[in-house]
Design a protein around this nucleic acid. Structure first.
Lengths: 329, 329
DNA sequence: CGCCATACCTTAAACGATTAAGTTCACCGG
DNA sequence: CCGGTGAACTTAATCGTTTAAGGTATGGCG
């Protein structure tokens, strides 16, 4: 198919080894030859065969992207992370390879060889993730893994405690005395950190915590019942921090049916921002997690870690800001 | 690293060639040897090195997944397609590799070598897609490419005409006399087919078409103005088919501010279903495009096409049903 | 003038798999 | 008894690249 190193060598009348050294900046060829080789490579459109390189150097130039099976289902957030990962690897030699979820069986050994793995939101109910981290491959996690998992090489995470405090401060500034927390899952560290920060805030402010734990597949009726219970308590919950992707509009819709929507002055903050929040009527205040940036950053970190001679002693941690985007009047 | 063919051969005291033939079911080894080799391979946990195979057989066992840069931005639909693709390749030798978008430059030649490409929703404004299809690689498109593009090897598409008719019939059955069409882009064949089907339906039913073309980044105010214009026409538009991902809830919210929401008896159908429609208050009737199924089917078709000795004369076309999911009373 | 170091290049081996082309040996028919 | 045949292997070449080891001028220096 394409031009090979041998083709190039034949064309120039020198050996393939010389061509290789010339193109890879290795010593052993004269500067003149190097320049000639470069020109010929350009002219003949030579592209090194990745497979040949991979075999010789025993690296594949591919990075696995792993996400739990439960994740990404109808999630705006994960699509954005993907875009970020793709963008982050775009100008490098590396390419992201989507790994199938091994949540149930944890059969990680059958995975294709990759130089490293980006684990997107390690969930504590995902067996495959545990095995992946234990396998010793270079790993970068987007969101920290559960403490019981083997340490990854790197982590990209949000400043969830600050984001939680910002959100609660905002809700209170909009007139609430007892902001509640609505969670949609308890398997991500992000979610657990938010709940911990929330409880901490409550104890600091001498407020009784109101945690409403729902699941994404619950019916509107069930969720409404849970909401009404907290909103009708002795000290009623009068504001809500919704920690979950794409769920705040749903909650807003339910609150509207009982006259407690953001339009009625009930403060609501979404823990995950997206165009859904921006274009909702009325717009919903939200934490901009910048999932695209996460993906990008994880890709970059992986590239950097692979260039280093050996694994860092401590996991490299990159904490990204998660600013509150205030919307509405 | 892992056990190689040579290791296995050494362990068994036979040549690597014999082991290869044994494991690949090629003639040239006795049934007894074959069985012994199989057992030893199992025992030593032999996994053929993909890179070695790739080099020898000049195939990489990876399939590129390409999507336009404009696409996937906060799209539930694309996340689901991805899940489907991953699932479709899960039990095969093939792995999906995410290709960076080459929309602007169309620099497809720098792509890593892949055995084929799944093009997700080819958009007519994406240069990279045109070049990809022209490059002669095996290609399967999810949604047909524009007619001006080189023919792909295969296509997985929705039955958009039927879905449009079903939607319009539903809207009329809910009391509308002049259903309108709201489109969010005109670069996908899906969108163009829907508009054509809509106009056809209108001419059959002697109704003046009302097409409202918006863009996803337009402000709520601008969109509201466009809506009001059609709703306040001489023969007012009294129902809406919203052909776009995740946009129907936004439109429903805007309609509510002028008292014409689905709750007020204004029939609304979303051209793309998702949990957003299911859990909206009130739930929104929608076409179930089954994006997960698309991805799965595209992966399967790619696998099948690669096994065939040569390219099919005509593009293989698989049309999947897109049933209307009626919600609300 | 002779010797050694150096620059620059070639040769060859290696990565791990597949496969065409040889080799060995038993067996069968004439 | 001998040539031919086929089964069951082995040998070796190959895919494209990298790199250690080997070779050959050339120049400098004693």
């Amino acid at each position: 198919m394409g031009t090979t190193l041998k083709d190039l060598a034949g064309h120039l009348g020198i050996s393939a080894a010389a061509v290789s050294m010339a193109l890879n900046g290795k010593p052993g060829v004269s500067e003149q030859t190097r320049e000639e080789v470069r020109r010929a490579a350009e002219e003949l459109g030579y592209r090194p065969n990745r497979t040949g390189q991979a075999l010789r150097l025993s690296r594949t130039n591919t990075i696995g992207v792993y996400f739990p099976s439960t994740v990404m289902e109808y999630s705006l957030y994960f699509a954005e992370i993907m875009r970020g990962i793709v963008a982050g690897f775009a100008d490098t030699e590396l390419s992201p390879l989507l790994l199938p979820s091994a949540g149930r069986t944890g059969q990680v050994r059958d995975f294709p060889e990759v130089d490293g793995v980006v684990v997107v939101e390690p969930h504590s109910d995902d067996l495959g993730m545990f095995e992946l981290l234990r396998s010793g491959r270079p790993t970068v996690c987007i969101d920290p893994p559960p403490p019981s998992a083997a340490a990854p090489w790197g982590v990209v995470e949000a400043d969830a405690p600050s984001a939680t405090r910002d959100s609660l401060r905002h809700i209170v500034s909009r007139g609430a005395a007892r902001p509640g927390l609505l969670t949609i899952e308890t398997v991500s560290e992000w979610s657990r950190t938010i709940e911990a920060s929330y409880r901490e805030w409550c104890s600091e402010h001498r407020v009784e915590p109101a945690v409403i734990a729902i699941s994404a597949r619950q019916s509107n009726e069930e969720i409404l019942e849970l909401l009404e219970r907290e909103l009708g308590a002795d000290v009623p919950c009068d504001g809500l921090f919704v920690a979950g992707d794409a769920v705040a509009p749903r909650i807003a819709g339910l609150l509207r049916t009982i006259g407690r929507s953001p339009e009625d002055g009930f403060p609501l903050v979404s823990g995950v921002d997206s165009t859904m929040m921006e274009f909702h009527t009325p717009p919903i205040t939200a934490i901009d997690l910048n999932p695209y940036g996460y993906g990008m950053q994880a890709a970059r970190m992986m590239g950097a870690l692979l260039l280093e001679p050996n694994r860092p002693g401590e996991p490299r941690i990159e904490r990204l800001p998660a600013p509150l985007v205030v919307r509405g009047t």
